[in-house]
Design a protein around this nucleic acid. Sequence first.
RNA 1: GGGCAUGUGGCCUAGUCAGGAUAGGGCGUUAGCCUCCUAAGCUAAUGGUCGGGGGUUCGAAUCCCUCCAUGCCCGCCA
Length: 555
Amino acid sequence: MFVETVDLIGRLLKGLTGEEDPLLVDGGDHADLASTIAFSLAKKQKRSPPLIAADLAEKLRILPELDGITIFSTGPYLNFTFGGEYLAQCVAAARKPGYGTLLKKYERVSIEHTSANPNGPLHVGHIRNTIIGDTLARAFRKAGYPCEVQYYINDMGRQIAIVVWGLETLGITRLPGEKGDHFIARVYVRANHAIRDDESINGAIERLMQEIERGDRDVDQAFRQAVNTCVEGIKETLFNLHVHHDRFVRESTFVRIGDMQRVLDRLARMDEAEVEGKFLSLDLTSSGFEKKYVLKRADGTSVYAARDIAYHVWKTANYDRNIDVLGADHKLIGAQLSATLRLMGEVPPEILHFEFVSLPEGAMSTRSGTFVSADELIEEVTARALEEVTKRRPELSPGERMAIARSVAVGAIRFDIVRVSPEKSTVFNWKQALDFERQSAPYVQYAHARACSILAKAGDFEEVYEYNDPHEIALTKAIARFPAVITSVVTDLRPHLLATYIRDVADLFNSFYRFVPVLKAEGSLRDARLCLVDATRNTLREALQTLGIDALESM
RNA sequence: GGGCAUGUGGCCUAGUCAGGAUAGGGCGUUAGCCUCCUAAGCUAAUGGUCGGGGGUUCGAAUCCCUCCAUGCCCGCCA
């Protein structure tokens, strides 16, 4: 209803003024919607903005299409306040299962996210990528797109060669109960120490890389095993964060099936190509890059970029919109990749970059072992949540308390990460991660549980949609914006808008809860309020699901 | 040195792309609210040169220039 109403007003205003843009803005405290069109018309008409606004208000008021909308001017501003019929339709729509789901679309979307190297567990920096990507994928599906989520496994890089070397020579054994990814990280850290102490080991690493590229059976087997051991642990962490990938794409695939060679052949024929023996690079100065873009080393082995181009060429052939979620450290290579694809006549991906997460003591690094793992974070937050549930709901069984604690913990982690806009670099903060008040998922989950509790006690009620109380009206208007928020998230690739939005709805519901009695109201007033509680419950539920957070009915 | 990004009360953050009406929240601090639908809640108080300076505009947190601070990148690593 919100989008439709804004569109209608925009169309009528354009028709009336002949302007291209109706200059609609948020009405703030003054109205539901406002237009600043009077300012831009002032010069052309040589009249003062307030006069023009008053004039337009009068002309719009008599249009039958705008019945039920209060139109008035305040100085130069043209204001619109939506009426009872609008509120009624919004609440009715918000109660339907699946509210917020947009019209089915046929553009195929791929989203690549996380894609952390399989040389250790996911840490709190990686999961910013994960949670942004997963929330985006959920939003795309909500917006009606067929969407496939991919994890690109760098399974033949130097890091993996280091892990393989470590596994074969350092004699480190996996501890009982140790997750594969944590075990691989220990090997990786130790191997790097060994290399630092004895640089001659690099020769062995290089040999491994040549052998894997040639497709040597034994080496391939060793790489595969090391990667699988790690990925198995990463998958467990992803599952615990409510994150799902539809496909794990191995970069070695593009070498094995010949795609990379075909792409390199194409690139070698381009004007920008520079070939020196087995060495191949691209001169991207025409695209504004100073350094050459290396694709093959002097020994003829390919670098990551070559495989990445092949991967993206494959994606362009199979999807209409390709989205990559990448850390800020990939900005340069992302831009080089895009420039190269453009030169090849391919469509570059849409890249959503997010800035770094660091620790108070400095940057995180898998190699040096200085990071807070996602598993550790989940464990700590779950323990803290369990403590809280036990305090609040001692009557529940340990199993029930644990189930709630898990849902609260995953929600708290996901929300804490997704609420910050991607372009801000952040410092990981335990106090904030363990805070379950106000601007947090538990706060929203709690509002949802409250709504459920009221409805459970209410029994049957009639459909009545009449609202006069300011708390009712404010809540209804917030609920009505949900579909518009989904649209913004997928068009601007800004998942944090969902977090901001859901917090607004929860805030308004909690105020409503405090000041407007529902079960104690009588007759049609009670029915109308119960309908609004149900609409809020459903909106919170749908929005929480889009954020990958459980909508608990009791907590 | 060059490139990209960020800078909003003691701390965290929305708003910046598509400029508009007194810059929204939260944490903290202070003072209230559970014989009343779950207090993971509600209300109020406190606290701001929107990094500094210049410019464009009827109007700038938002656009342009410049300076400062911070993060990231500038590998035949990924």
